[in-house]
Amino acid sequence: MCISSRIDKAFYDIGRLDILALADTPLHRLDPRAKLLATLVFIVCVVSFGKYEISRLLPFSLYPAVLIGLGDLPPGYLAKKLIMVSPFVIFIGIFNPWFDQTVMFTIGPIAISGGWVSFASLIIRFILTVSAALILIASTGFAPMCMAMEKLGTPKIFAVQLLMLYRYLFVLIAESLRIVRAHSLRSFSRKGKITYRVFLQIAGNLLLRTIDRAQRIHMAMLSRAFTGEIKIVRQFSFGYKEWLFAAGFSVIFITMRSADIAGLLGRLLMEIK
């Protein structure tokens, strides 16, 4: 595998999410705070279920599905990102069937153990929580979200830190990408593999350049009357749409959490049959 592919991929990967956030849809136009609040309620409701819960988790897929629709987001791309980060959860979760072999129920001749049920539950949780977070960023953009977080009480300096990181992320990834490419152009025998020593050189040099850059940025700030505090004007309006979105979804989630909608509906359906 080519060594620079990881960093290349990351570059385009972040870029893609970033571009998605520039779109103009009803979902994108909502105040970020509404989306953030609804997403937090969503995640807390999802993870608060018992570990064997499956059926009552399923209705929660309503939220990502509706948001993907409202925000015109590409489900395939989001799914790919989900799969990319799944190994850790699968690795931890796969022990559940191993340690918990109590038979929970049987489907015909097949006995399903509690471990498999909790594993499935874990995967569903994972899909729901991660997709909610991805949708949040893809429909909001990082910068507006930081500003919304600041409005919701995150310390200003931390919000500014997030904004600065985000701004220079692209600059520095591009810079290290150039270094890594330049290295792989001249490392014929090692197939572009970066040795520990070379890595130190790359990292050290990039670090020095980065520190110099910080000094220049500081000068650019000072020359525009910077006095130690970064001021941002960002007028968000939390109007009726936002109330409707945040409160509406919260009510739905809490209802789905507290009442067994799935069970009720299922019983109803099965009785009709």
Binding site: L62, A65, L265, G266
Partner: peptide, 30 residues
């Protein structure tokens, strides 16, 4: 067992409903 089967059926139904709504919205906002 009964309620959990019912639960699963219902859960899948709601999920499909949700996906349907999402799909419809996507079509529309497209």
């Amino acid at each position: 067992l009964g309620t959990s089967t019912a639960g699963l059926v219902g859960g899948v139904m709601v999920m499909l409903l949700g996906l349907g709504i999402g799909f419809a919205l996507k079509k529309k906002s497209g």
